[in-house]
Measured scan of single mutants.
Amino acid sequence: MGFKLLSKLLVYLTASIMAIASPLAFSVDSSGEYPTVSEIPVGEVRLYQIADGVWSHIATQSFDGAVYPSNGLIVRDGDELLLIDTAWGAKNTAALLAEIEKQIGLPVTRAVSTHFHDDRVGGVDVLRAAGVATYASPSTRRLAEVEGNEIPTHSLEGLSSSGDAVRFGPVELFYPGAAHSTDNLIVYVPSASVLYGGCAIYELSRTSAGNVADADLAEWPTSIERIQQHYPEAQFVIPGHGLPGGLDLLKHTTNVVKAHTNRSVVE
């Protein structure tokens, strides 16, 4: 069995187990497998329904001669939608809004960016022009300005110390501490036991640490421990890039980060 097929099978099995364990909360999309990078042309966006009122959005972007996937989250909030992270750029984010209108038909009224990198804030200006209120932590807003990236308009308070959590509509926002970046936030959907790890969490097929220019490698494993301790009931975990899975993604990420750190020390 090929690795790609095995990865998709694991996603399907995880979703099936969740649907059985929580039949009222989960209505997993039966329309197909989780979209992969090879299936999404740059400039297009796919939506994948995880649970009743919960979707991931998947886009792709060219970077350094390669094409990478990027995940975000959409959560229903009454007759409105909360968006977590842009679709990595203005063109993708405009396509995301169009796809949401086509498939869901509810307005996106608020959006949260989970850290300051372009795959999370690139497209904020498109959201703002569409009347979406954009939010991020003060740290993310400051770092985005320093980096020359787009800056969300509103500040999220109460997320300055490791372990801080605040309720934001249908989700809980959690600051686990520094990891992929010093400002990275985690998003949890309690009604569906869905954990969105953003770039602080890796997919299972990833074996290298990737972009760690703004990471705190020493603190990252401790931050992941905080996530595990705060959300032990999480059933569906979405990484910032690639295929979702279960809580095993947290341990896998820790292993990859520690291996990278150990290699760096040896070198």
Rank of each mutant, 00 (worst) to 15 (best):
M1K: 14
M1Q: 07
G2K: 10
L9T: 09
V11P: 14
Y12E: 04
Y12L: 13
S16N: 04
A19W: 14
L24H: 03
A25M: 11
F26V: 11
S27I: 10
G32V: 08
E33P: 03
Y34I: 14
T36S: 06
E44H: 15
E44Q: 07
V45L: 11
L47V: 08
I50F: 08
V54F: 02
T60F: 03
T60E: 03
S62C: 06
S62F: 14
F63W: 09
D64S: 12
D64A: 09
G65R: 09
V67F: 06
Y68S: 14
P69G: 05
P69I: 04
P69M: 03
L73E: 02
V75L: 12
R76F: 14
R76V: 08
L83K: 01
I84Q: 00
I84M: 15
T86H: 02
W88E: 01
W88R: 00
G89V: 05
G89Y: 09
A94D: 12
L96D: 01
A98W: 05
E99F: 15
E99Y: 03
E101K: 03
I104E: 10
I104T: 05
P107C: 05
P107I: 07
V108I: 03
A111P: 01
H115T: 00
H115S: 01
R120H: 14
G122R: 08
G123I: 01
G123E: 00
V124S: 08
V124N: 06
D125L: 12
L127F: 05
A129E: 10
A130M: 13
G131W: 08
T134G: 04
A136E: 01
S137C: 04
S139C: 15
T140D: 01
R142K: 14
A144N: 13
E145W: 09
G148M: 10
P152Q: 14
T153H: 02
H154N: 01
H154Y: 02
G158T: 11
S161P: 08
S162K: 06
S162E: 07
S162H: 15
A165T: 13
V166W: 06
V166N: 04
G169S: 03
V171P: 01
E172W: 12
E172M: 14
G177W: 00
H180M: 00
S181P: 00
N184K: 01
I186R: 00
I186M: 10
V187W: 00
A192K: 12
S193W: 12
S193L: 09
V194G: 11
L195D: 00
L195H: 01
G197A: 06
G198E: 03
A200G: 07
A200Y: 01
I201H: 02
Y202M: 02
L204N: 13
S205F: 11
S205R: 08
S208K: 11
N211I: 11
V212N: 14
V212Y: 09
A213S: 13
A215P: 04
E219S: 07
S223I: 14
R226P: 14
I227T: 11
Q228C: 02
Y231V: 09
Q235S: 06
Q235P: 13
V237R: 01
G242I: 01
L243K: 06
P244H: 14
P244Q: 07
P244G: 09
G246L: 06
D248Q: 13
L249H: 07
K251Q: 15
H252T: 14
V256E: 10
K258E: 13
K258I: 11
N262V: 06
R263C: 05
S264A: 06
V265P: 14
